[in-house]
Design a protein around this nucleic acid. Structure first.
Lengths: 225, 225
DNA sequence: CCCCCCAAATATGTCGACACTTTCTCTTGA
DNA sequence: TCAAGAGAAAGTGTCGACATATTTGGGGGG
């Protein structure tokens, strides 16, 4: 259901790759709670592998900022402080704003049609209030994901999809955040998509930045309570 | 002379840490040419260590985007294509623009004074045309570095300082780019610094983005020739 | 009763060896 | 002569074991 595409996988899958995915999923879904220490022997035993590939996986998790490793002290699942979460939104504002601008300039007509289709699908989902929260949460990421893809800037895609989005999802699982601004967010999404469809890069960037800034402030308010 | 500060080092230094720094320096300075294959046994022998820590170092180099690793095929030093170099400048435009905005809002008066001092030092250096190119190159990074630090956004600092700046430096070493726009760049720097000193975040972001965009276009022109 | 110090236990860092994959080379056949 | 295939060589992936650092627990002293 979630269209967070892994960039093209290598033909042969190494053990470290497989364990990396498994542990990442376990962390993002909160199975391994944030802040908890990760014991290499324990995890290696759980997955039935040696410590070598496990360390490789942990190292990759560190590079995606899901775990922290300190020499001779081991690895811990990161627990995002409120400030760190807000920091991520600031970066997303900058990067996704740029992504929206580039998407308006370079996205293919087909991709724009897909984007509009995704939005109309979201619209119908939002009307069914029961599924609202779940679909809006994942659907929100899908929308941002498609625009980032449309930017055509591979490094931009990597930074956002491999690092920041996983963090955002982990945080949502962690705090069970229900969005009560699904309808509002959907309207903002529509405005961005329209600007892209009209090839107005400057406006698309401005709208996307305002959208993310609004989301950040909503979270900020929620955290202060 | 180069103030690219490593974020606070752990007390104990592991072998993998040391080799990571050494290999990174070798790559950035072009000692290990871009695109060349990295043989684990060879490098391990050169540094007198086992393949374990070396692989850890290679993994960290991969996470900083200085080497590419593919399963069962080994590691290669990345060789930036022209497009990839330009992609980095697009991301820098977005991120450093935001950094300048934040710096204008949050930088301490002392830090701003340091920034102005750095610029006046650059001014005197630019007048001595012989050292111009070298100092301008490194000084340029120092200037950007100080502003990014002033943003106070730790993740922003990490992304720029640990990844993108090293790539930019490698590319400069690789192509031996001499900047013939040192004087112009210096003026642009001064404008950004002034906007920060006046706490005008919006202007600071606009000026920084224009500055980086101008640099990108200068490179673009140079590459097409 | 609390604090400090020392030792055992546990975990991480490092190493060497083995297995499997990839690549190169040489042979064989058309 | 060239192409295809088999075998060898080199390299990466994985494993188990040892060395070193950290943590934990207990004992002694204040």
């Amino acid at each position: 259901m979630v269209a967070v595409a892994e960039s093209l996988k290598p033909a042969t899958l190494t053990i470290a790759d497989r364990v990396f995915d498994q542990v990442r999923q376990a962390i993002v879904q909160g199975e391994i709670p944030p802040g908890s220490k990760i014991s290499e022997p324990v995890l290696a035993a759980r997955y039935g592998i040696s410590r070598g590939p496990l360390r490789e996986a942990l190292r990759r998790l560190e590079s995606t900022n899901l775990v922290e490793r300190r020499p001779n002290l081991g690895a811990r699942v990161i627990s995002l402080s409120n400030d760190q979460l807000l920091e991520i939104y600031v970066i997303r504002e900058a990067l996704e704003g740029m992504a929206a601008r580039l998407a308006a300039e370079r996205m293919t007509e087909d991709a724009i049609a897909d984007l509009q289709r995704l939005l109309s699908q979201h619209r119908s989902e939002v009307e069914r209030t029961d599924w609202q929260t779940y679909f809006q949460q994942e659907g929100d990421l899908d929308f941002h994901f498609q625009i980032v893809q449309g930017s055509g800037n591979q490094r931009l895609i990597d930074i956002l999809c491999n690092d920041l989005y996983h963090l955002a999802r982990m945080y949502r699982c962690q705090f069970g955040m229900k969005s009560d601004r699904a309808a509002v967010a959907l309207k903002e999404h529509q405005l961005v998509a329209d600007a892209i469809a009209e090839r107005d890069g400057e406006l698309a960037e401005w709208l996307m930045r305002r959208h993310i800034r609004t989301s950040r402030r909503a979270i900020e308010r929620r955290l202060q309570r």
